[in-house]
Computed example of a mutant assay.
Amino acid sequence: MARLFVVLTALAVVFSVLAFQNGNVPIGILFALVAAGPLVFLISVAVRARKVPAPAGRPAPESGPGPLSNRNRKLAVRLIAVAVVAAVGYGGYWVLFAPKAGNAAVSRVSDLEDGCAGIRKYFPDNDAYTGPGPHPVAVFTTSDSDSLDLASMGADVPPQWDDVRLDPRRVQVIACLDAPGDGPYLTDCKFTSDTLKLIQGTYDVTLYEAKTGEEIGTAQLLGSSQPGCPSLTLTKSGADSIHTEPDFAAYRAALGKYVDN
């Protein structure tokens, strides 16, 4: 049990340091308290034991249960162990999956791509997603080569969709497209070294608030149904197909209620 406490306490210390480094002060304080809990308990037990008076005419025992009975002591140890395990478990989730505050300067919309990365980040200095629209958006796609790319909405789109002229700090919504799924087969595309099937892409989208990383909503959309082959493409090794991407009309139809309204 003692070794387990040492290991869990050490993990709580690590999680506390990581939380403070990522600017999450409440979580850092929580793990600091968790790390201190077992030590405070042991000190309390030791102090109580030293205060136990010796019976008349007998030498004081080297150690004793003190005012805290053995049963209560075991119960307290178990409760502390459960609390520490739960906190460390949450810490593992927080380290591996919870979004972290982005520390790097944001000067372009493409700098927000970490909002869709494996360990997502949020951007505390960005505008909040609140009130009526428009809510400026940055859309990132996962390509056939598994790269994360800023989606281009084209020319003459409303300001809240304009990835070229949009101030990145005004972005309120980050939309993340998963890797494309397979829709209908469209045509074969011949390239210099290979021929690839062109498939209409299907996309699952998750939208997050840029400022907090909180999920706003989800959507699905389709890539273009037109059998137009690109002049150049990148794919994963061994791939035999590529996927069409959505156009602006598809993005707006699927995401407009989060962006325009």
Rank of each mutant, 00 (worst) to 15 (best):
L75K: 12
A87F: 01
V139L: 06
K236A: 10
T192Q: 14
P132S: 12
P61R: 15
G183K: 05
Y129R: 02
L4G: 15
S147Y: 07
V106C: 08
I29F: 10
R120N: 07
S16R: 01
K190W: 00
A19Q: 04
R120M: 13
D125P: 00
L68E: 12
E215W: 05
R73G: 11
E245Q: 14
E62L: 12
D111I: 07
L207I: 14
V52T: 14
N72F: 09
T235N: 05
D156N: 14
D188N: 13
P99L: 07
A239R: 05
R252Y: 02
F248D: 00
L196K: 05
Q200R: 15
C176M: 08
P124S: 09
I216W: 06
T192V: 12
K236P: 00
S143G: 14
D156H: 11
P124Q: 09
R3F: 10
L232F: 03
P230N: 07
P180R: 03
R169E: 10
D167M: 09
V109M: 04
T195K: 12
P132E: 10
V6H: 09
D127K: 15
F123K: 00
D149M: 08
G154T: 11
K100Q: 13
E215R: 14
V205D: 01
T141C: 00
I174T: 14
S237N: 09
V14P: 00
L30K: 04
R120W: 06
A210S: 15
G64Q: 14
Q226Y: 07
C116D: 08
D156F: 08
R108L: 13
G213S: 13
A81Y: 06
N22F: 12
F5G: 11
T212M: 03
Q160W: 06
G57H: 10
R252V: 00
N22D: 15
V157N: 03
R78H: 12
L196Q: 02
I119H: 11
S147F: 08
V85L: 13
A36M: 13
R48Y: 06
Y122L: 04
T9N: 12
P132C: 01
G238Q: 11
A210G: 05
G133R: 06
L255A: 04
P65R: 15
Q226V: 11
H135K: 14
D156C: 02
T218G: 12
N126M: 06
A104L: 08
A98M: 06
L11D: 00
S145Q: 10
L166F: 04
V171N: 02
G213W: 06
D111M: 12
Y258N: 02
A104K: 09
D144Y: 09
L33S: 08
S63R: 10
I174S: 00
T206G: 05
